[in-house]
Design a protein around this nucleic acid. Structure first.
Lengths: 218, 218
DNA sequence: AAGATTCCGTTAGAGGGTATCACGAACCGT
DNA sequence: ACGGTTCGTGATACCCTCTAACGGAATCTT
């Protein structure tokens, strides 16, 4: 939080109110979901009347965009600090799951159903590519002696998203598989599709991760 | 559609209007997403004023529930007819993907972000278990000579969701993997998380499916 | 065929949401 | 102390869901 404490008291107050709005927004989102986020309700909880919030956020969309940005940032930071502490892919996976379970709606805000019209600003895409870079690094740490698949060949020519990362196509493929598979288990768990089925989602996650790692090691 | 044509003209009219409402609802959902579905907008497109729709649906929730039901039913029917035509797991997977791409919002209506408060009626859970049964059948068709994993052992004691299906735990595990992995790729594709990355989502899907099948075959 | 009943669609209205606008008040730097 | 900036407010327009009361049409009953 480098730029939080501003020079003038006015700006101090402003950023503090913006932070309080976001905090209440997260609270509300955690219980009612992002689609039911209401500026009005936040304003009333802050003791002021509706339109006042428009001094701080141009509208609902801008607030949600800010929340999405923070969510991406939080995920990237969490994974990076784990990675910096020497986490391998397995630890990274459990870090991801812990982050998701900590606030399911925050995960779903990023990876859940998007609003058809909405398009995220460029800086958000940038933060999300940070996460991808961390993943690529972790995937590159494994030995890569598997057979090249057709999709690997395709990736050799379509690797713009790797953003200059020097990993070979097989590593890119690994990172994608890591992402999509863990998201598959996680999102279904968070969406409640496993409730009532009886088994422990954590064990399914572990099994998927295990399978993922043994395949990568061959 | 056995009960569609009712006896009395009144019921005929009623069911026809209900169908028209649903049709417009699907149109609207396809473009604006489920969260933005508006009874008012549907009514105006039908040339009548808002509250009239409440003669046909008790409210927005009931309409959406009906849409969810129809979506589950459509998926189950699609997979069953494919299965009846002799489709193996690979064909089933591509059938699933085709069904999802045909109307992304329909897929997301089922497997996307849920509204925290909402709980689906029991009959919907039943239809979804039909889909699971089809999957289990297809998974049981493969030879099962892999090593038993810890999760397999867990499934042996937590298999209520299989609803009496005589498949061994390893097959249950396969079905779950099939479901979660394909959902992982599909949902990210439908949510647009691959746009701008450059590669072809269809190839990633194919690669994931290939990996899934070779692992299952061992 | 005529009356009774049921059902349909309308308007009116409560309550909540987003968002804009103009106005008074508080604040801050000068 | 003064003047410009910023803040919070109420009023307003326009969405939405949903309920209630009313007139009219279609259906059922006798």
């Amino acid at each position: 939080m480098a730029g939080t404490d501003a020079k003038t008291p006015r700006e101090r107050y402003r950023t503090q109110v913006r932070a309080e709005i976001k905090e209440l927004a997260w609270e509300q989102i955690a219980t009612t979901g992002a689609s039911a986020l209401s500026l009005n309700a936040i304003a009333k909880r802050m003791g002021m009347s509706g339109p006042a919030l428009y001094r701080y956020y141009a509208g609902r969309d801008e607030l949600i965009t800010e929340l999405v940005r923070d969510a991406y940032r939080s995920l990237a930071d969490t994974l990076r600090s784990a990675s910096a502490a020497g986490a391998d892919l397995a630890v990274l996976a459990h870090t991801l799951r812990a982050w998701a379970l900590e606030d399911p709606q925050r995960y779903l805000l990023i990876y859940g159903t998007p609003v058809p019209g909405y398009h995220a600003p460029d800086d958000i895409t940038l933060i999300s590519s940070e996460t991808m870079a961390i993943l690529l690094d972790a995937c590159a740490a494994l030995p890569s002696d598997g057979p090249a698949t057709p999709f690997d060949a395709h990736l050799a020519d379509h690797r713009d998203w790797a953003d200059g990362h020097p990993a070979p196509p097989a590593v890119l493929h690994r990172a994608l598989s890591f992402w999509t598979r863990l998201h598959g288990v996680l999102s279904l768990e968070l969406a409640g599709h496993f409730t009532g089925m009886g088994f422990d989602p954590a064990l399914l996650f572990a099994a998927e991760l295990d399978d993922l790692l043994t395949v990568m090691d061959r």
